[in-house]
Amino acid sequence: MKSSVTTSPVRTETPAALKPKRSRDYGRLWTIGPVVVWMGVLFLLPLLLVLAVSFFSRSTFGGIEPPLTANNYIRFFDPLYYKILWVSCVLAFTTTILCLFLGYPFAYVVARAPVHLRNLLLLLIIVPFWTNSLIRTYAWIVLLRTEGVINTVLKALGLIAEPLPMLYNEFAVLTGLVYTMLPFMVLPLYASIEKLDKAYLEAAADLGATSWQTFWRVTVPLTAPGIMAGSLLVFIPSLGLFFIPDLMGGSKAVLIGNLIKNQFLTARDWPFGSAASIILMALTLLFIGGYLAVTKDKEGKGLT
């Protein structure tokens, strides 16, 4: 390592010449050191703890005890559990698709709006984020429940006789997820559509492409990094969001996020909860790996 970090082109092997280099090494330590400590304490250590716990056994009173075992992982492949994972993936996927279809036109309009309007529209997407997401979820409950705002209004207008069942089902969970995740789709899409050079659209029209053909053959491929990034940013957190299924799905919707939460808080089975977390994380890494392979986005630019 040392030889590769020398900055002077001529290396003299005398100790005197090495001394100033040493002090520069301290300088490097000062700049890199805090980052290493930060990453170690806040990222690596908790991760290693979870990984370690996942190989222990559950003690009678909900603690952890030896012997070390892989049983927690084996247990996950019980149909009961991997079905939960499958249902979660399907729900997260549906959320992603819905966010994409709702988010793309919106991002397109914002990116093509006059500059002074653009910032206002972006602000409108971001402002709800300044409110706690739990509170926003409760707001949805107020809207959707049997005696909620929507049903009351529809009944008053005489459009429905019986209240629509809009809460405590999959529809409610999906609504909550799409609502919460939409900005994560819109922002990367906006970034890539905004970067799209209008000359490409003119070139396509010039070559005889209708607006629709231009959209599918030019706009979509050229904004693919934004589509992929947005999809990933929606899909991955959707797998783990537990409070939306909890609050809006009632007891029916058990998803992987709820499963993990329940293992820690209700069942007090930390080792199994940890194993499920590690499996979910492995799956997530797999998706990110797939993203990098497909988009050849080596530096992960689309994700930042």
């Binding site: 050079d197 000359a199 490409y200 003119e202 070139a203 396509a204 029209a205 010039d206 070559l207 005889g208 492409a209 209708t210 030019v218 491929p221 050229l222 693919a224």
Partner: peptide, 20 residues
């Protein structure tokens, strides 16, 4: 008539070749 219905073609200053 819109651009795509005119039988003329353009060579753009920046070329505007589709990068994908």
């Amino acid at each position: 008539r819109p651009a795509y219905e005119r039988n003329v073609n353009t060579v753009f200053q920046s070329y505007a070749l589709f990068p994908h």
